[in-house]
Design a protein around this nucleic acid. Structure first.
Lengths: 364, 364
DNA sequence: CTTGTCATTGACACCGGTTTCCATTACACA
DNA sequence: TGTGTAATGGAAACCGGTGTCAATGACAAG
């Protein structure tokens, strides 16, 4: 009546064959079998458990190396109840800015088990919040990095928190607690840039502002106003034109400012793209930059250095900020960096890059 | 002696409580229990199995809706032996191009269960191939989209094939079988652009080429040579200057070309960034574009429309190509698109965009 | 009434890891 | 030599889905 348990047969034959046929990928079972230990022990090696004999560890590591074994991230994610995805969520129209952020994040994630996944959102779309929720609920990324301007939205930050997803917001000013934020000092930087114009002798300085509702736009405008007030220069409403961070709006805004009599001798534009529009508009009128008009931008995108004349602008350490933000997100999750990460800085300095689009105003 | 089986207690109470405590996320078991069916049936609903009673489907779908149940992508990936990640692999230095590709891919992936994951590679890095292998082996994405110039590398395509990862290569010419490629007609497009210059009366036309080893650079150069040959215009070596697709190289190349006597009256640059360098160099010499020098670029990046003067250039339907490539990657994997996807086109037309950087040459 | 077919459904093993809990071993100490 | 304790490794359950295959029941045909 006692029959041989049928599972013994495959069990024996599987000693040398099982597991590697399907995909050619070795599994944890293969490693365990060949190293002569249990799965658990291999798991301990992978996860750097301290309760482990040194010899055993070495033997297992050797087998892992020989086999080229790589733990299946999906299986780990399932077992651990969390995954290794770091999301980049943005609705930023500036390609170079986004790329710089990606660059910085990848630097931080390099050599970790985390992977970056990018989710652009359509700025202004009514379904934006739903799209984001959908993304977070489906992918459940371990953490997300929120880029401006979406990072300024408290509702979105709350959504992340509610879903239980770590988040860090990149911003132009302090938006959140240290743990959830990296910020730059846009206001001061713009104040310094404007002061640079004032120091050169400019008095009629125009501002092309950013879009309403953008924190960065507000900060930059405030910085501009600070500098003018500090210098005791009146700032008539006609010297401020609204932009929306896009090239075309810079064009239109500059046209308005340059129609004012007497004409401004300098224009500060809240980003480089609009500054390109300003220069474009000036050229169309036959003005020469900087002789007839000095221009300063903000961002230091490649276009700034490449346009003619090269644009004086404010450089924002965006890749560094993104790197720091990503390190905050994975803080405590990696062996080597855990201590460094908790002390990642939250505040970064933007600095003025002087190029050829600025000079002293022509004598009148 | 007959004690109540202890598991009954939690079993009974769990009808309304179990499974949802840990993360707040309902699982397939919750849905099954509440709908009064088995996991498998819920799975059938999720996967749109046809072998399913309509009433059952409705009831389960209702529960899914009520609970806000979302299948765990990691668990599905594990069970199915494949995941829902589509990788974008690139070493392209042009931010706008990369963003356009991302845009196109996301359009294709929108409303599917696939997610985009981006892996930039350091162009020219010795570890590039290893980095890519590492990425593919660790993440095992369902498919990858290879952007130029890395897409031109047959070794890399073979690596994808060996690992069992679907791939589609974006290129400037036919690189692979239809299934694995989307291409544009760079050569023809450049021929047309050059002919445009010739038709306007230009005879001394300079070329700023792209880097050696880039397929796109070769195609564009060939198109240029085609047009000159067709028109019976001699093309002295001095009228060709090497660039590497970067702004600075355009600057240097233009300096070389503009030193030639007699000076060229037009320059075709193999991309916009170098064209910006050409215009920059011309401005530095006090030349006016297009009066003294006509310039044509390639790519139609935003910088082209924003620089002064606006750049005549060749527009490459990159987002459309990327969208098509992504649809090829997921062909047969989505319910609605399966038929459309197999017939995704593989060849796309680039077209000349006429702006203000080109005019007839000045009379001599 | 019996049998076969089809549509529908569920039990159970499985994907490849991690975790819990227990068994074993080694070693120090009485 | 007996025993308590720490270190180590293994068996089995589990994470949340999917595949296989068999069971069920309704219905038509014989």
């Amino acid at each position: 009546m006692t029959s041989i348990p049928p599972r013994l047969v495959p069990a024996i034959s599987s000693v040398y064959a099982s597991g590697m046929e399907k995909t050619g990928q070795p599994t944890i079972n293969d490693v365990a079998r060949i190293a002569g230990v249990s799965k658990k022990t291999v798991s301990r090696v992978i996860n750097r458990s301290p309760l482990l004999n040194e010899d055993t560890r070495k033997r297992v590591e050797e087998v892992i190396g020989d086999l080229g074994y790589i733990p299946n991230p999906q299986a780990r994610a399932l077992a651990l109840g969390r995954n290794f995805l770091i999301g980049l969520v943005h609705d930023n129209p500036n390609a170079q800015t986004v790329m710089n952020v990606q660059q910085g994040m990848l630097e931080a994630l390099y050599d970790t088990e985390f992977e970056m996944i990018v989710r652009p959102l359509n700025r202004g779309s009514l379904t934006m919040l739903d799209d984001l929720r959908h993304f977070l609920e489906r992918q459940r990324p371990f953490g997300v990095l929120l880029m401006p301007p979406i990072s300024e939205n408290d509702v979105i930050a709350k959504l992340c928190a509610d879903i239980g997803c770590r988040y860090v917001r990149m911003g132009s000013t302090e938006l959140d607690s240290d743990e959830h934020m990296v910020a730059s000092n846009d206001r001061e930087a713009v104040r310094d840039a404007t002061r640079h114009l004032i120091d050169l002798g400019h008095r009629r300085i125009g501002l092309v502002s950013g879009p309403h509702g953008f924190r960065s736009a507000r900060e930059r405008r405030l910085g501009f106003e600070d500098a003018m007030r500090d210098a005791g220069i009146a700032l008539p409403r006609s010297m401020i034109a609204d932009g929306d961070y896009r090239f075309e709006s810079g064009l239109v805004a500059a046209d308005r400012l340059l129609d004012v009599v007497p004409r401004p001798t300098a224009i500060f534009s809240c980003n480089d793209e609009m500054a390109a529009g300003v220069i474009h508009a000036a050229c169309q009128r036959g003005l020469t930059v900087p002789r007839d008009l000095s221009v300063i931008g903000f961002d230091d995108t490649p276009i700034a250095a490449h346009m003619w004349p090269p644009l004086t602008t404010v450089r924002w350490p965006i890749a560094t900020m993104a790197r720091s933000a990503a390190l905050k997100l994975i803080a405590g999750m990696t062996a080597q960096e855990s201590d460094a990460a908790v002390s990642e800085p939250s505040l970064f300095r933007s600095t003025l890059i002087r190029r050829a689009s600025v000079s002293a105003p022509a004598a009148e």
